[in-house]
Design a protein around this nucleic acid. Sequence first.
DNA 1: GCTGTAGTTATTATATTTTTTACAGCAACA
DNA 2: TGTTGCTGTAAAAAATATAATAACTACAGC
Lengths: 144, 144
Amino acid sequence: MKYPTKLSDAAHILAFIALHPECDLTSGKLAESVQTNPAYVRQLMSAMRKGGLLLSVKGHPKPALAREPARISLLDIYRAVEGDKPLLHQDTHTNPACGVGMNIQLALQSFYMDIQQAAENRMRQITLRDILDQYHARVKESSK
Amino acid sequence: MKYPTKLSDAAHILAFIALHPECDLTSGKLAESVQTNPAYVRQLMSAMRKGGLLLSVKGHPKPALAREPARISLLDIYRAVEGDKPLLHQDTHTNPACGVGMNIQLALQSFYMDIQQAAENRMRQITLRDILDQYHARVKESSK
DNA sequence: GCTGTAGTTATTATATTTTTTACAGCAACA
DNA sequence: TGTTGCTGTAAAAAATATAATAACTACAGC
């Protein structure tokens, strides 16, 4: 497992916080659920705090969402933890002296942006609220 | 630069072949344009041959598209060189004993599939023909 | 047969991600 | 006010995926 899973882990953390508003959620407890280490959790939380998604205070374990789940989209989370990293990557290391290759890559660029837009539009529509709803549906289903 | 650029490189190779139907295109010449080594080019070509996009014969440098550019989509190329690797990756290593975390990841899964679908739909619409058209437009533009 | 190239596999190098370690600073509480 | 536990942050280490490289066999064309 060395593919980037920051988005998954970050969403996991946010959902966990939303589901346990009363408890003391230490980075250790969150790390236990994600099965990672507390420092990594704090790194992700730090990124999300900077991204305006999370509120937390140094010293005591009471993280809280900065706004309601319906107003936190997957794209927001992605931006917070991955920045503007695209889903598809161009080869920026082609031969600059080859005009043909250069123009092929430039042509590709515009299409990659289209694909990125298509994915981002979908990510913008999916909110933490949706994820929580889906979570509850699954819990209900499995308890039947 | 260690992000996956196989799709970009594969599309580059296909476009280059489409643009030079007369020439002897050795893996070395293609590698020169992509600025990589011939063996890597051959690996990508091998994947695309297995994916039914490319025709080539061992021993002589005459690669050819298996079908017309308008019938080769970016998704075809992606499938050929990346298989079914998703754009977003779940964290499959969360704590199995944590039912909450488990269900959060399962909930995420369905949304990731949506995003993947959105991206793939766009990739399916973009063909090598489109890329070549865009290429020609850029060449024309830059020669003005 | 000789030469050049494709096809394939294995190894190495490099970049990126995650893990781990460490420590200063704040909150809660006795 | 001192102690404890946690956060926030940085930096170094480990893990691993990707591309680069090397090496080999096999085929085409001359």
